[in-house]
Write a protein that binds this DNA or RNA. Sequence first.
DNA 1: GCGGCTTGTTGACACACTGCCAACAAGCCG
DNA 2: CGGCTTGTTGGCAGTGTGTCAACAAGCCGC
Lengths: 199, 199
Amino acid sequence: MSVDVGQRRRLEPDARREQILLVAVRLFGERGYADVSTGDVARGAGVARGLVNHYFGTKKELYLDVIRVMLTVPDSALTLLPPADLTTRADAIATWFLDVVSRHSTSWLGAITAGGMAGDDDVDRVISEAVDIAADRVLTAVGLPVRSRALHAMARSYVGLATSTAREWLQRGDLTRAQVHKLLTATLLTMVDQVFPDA
Amino acid sequence: MSVDVGQRRRLEPDARREQILLVAVRLFGERGYADVSTGDVARGAGVARGLVNHYFGTKKELYLDVIRVMLTVPDSALTLLPPADLTTRADAIATWFLDVVSRHSTSWLGAITAGGMAGDDDVDRVISEAVDIAADRVLTAVGLPVRSRALHAMARSYVGLATSTAREWLQRGDLTRAQVHKLLTATLLTMVDQVFPDA
DNA sequence: GCGGCTTGTTGACACACTGCCAACAAGCCG
DNA sequence: CGGCTTGTTGGCAGTGTGTCAACAAGCCGC
């Protein structure tokens, strides 16, 4: 991809930083954390390896920025959801989630499973924050309070279910989108009706 | 941590291999994949680093054996489940799962999230096999055929839900065991009644 | 247009870790 | 006790990472 063997060119810090970041997003999305070296990123950006460290400090910090980008999700149509009955809202939530996941596909699933670095405290924290946001969206969409810790935890669990189900669909191909949709709406309704009232 | 600074002692291959493996299980359980070097394992076992490579080949192969050990789960009381009605069986499944997870706690959750190496093909395969086993247990326990790919995939999704819910309970502490139990039984019943019939 | 300054950028150094392999010696057999 | 098998060791080469002093691109005053 445009090796650009020209002279060294001086870019604005923000521009150079973003250019490197985009290359890193692509590479980390394709391969795992361990299989991408900072040298690969530098070569991909046509830049000296030291410059990557200059802008992002450590390789792990670079990766943190990468998954932050990958997991940033558009709220899109979900926020302005019509106040219809619960069933149609659950339906809309499932549609929204499947749209989001299928759009980013490998990148999103790769990031949410920490494409090679779950267990690290910092990485887990960034992923956890992304799950928090998704959980908030789900709770507000079904019209439940976001405050309750227990409710929020259950919504996080639901995001976990949605993630693993999406993986069965997109990565393993053992489920159709319709089946996933049915599963996500049915379980969400069950949670709201039977499980959430206890909390 | 008996450092055992004595002479070099000659052990049976199986014994030495298992000794090293146990140390590796402990270390990888405490810290992530990247934060444990083969040197750490060797030092923990009071052994030269080269010996670790001799027995396990590569660091990743060692890790594969480690998560194989961590994810090996006793079928215990679940197989000889009384043919009671579906509700009590779902209840027994939740109890079984929570017992298994809480017993191994950090080790199991650490392994199932690939304590530092999801995204690697081999690691993912080993984890996937463990999920397959758990999914089979769930399906047979509720009295459904194990053959169907779609059913199996849904059971895998359910294991994903169980895992993420358990994490909310054990790692984040935002759910009680009773709440997790309620959630797992209710969603399982919903799946069996409403979602599985389609497949 | 030229010299100087700021600062984006580079190349190289030191360090850590991994995989590999020849040499060593512990324990058993004759 | 002498020789042999083989568990075990220490060191070497290769790769990846973080750091840092030195270089030069582009802008300013003159």
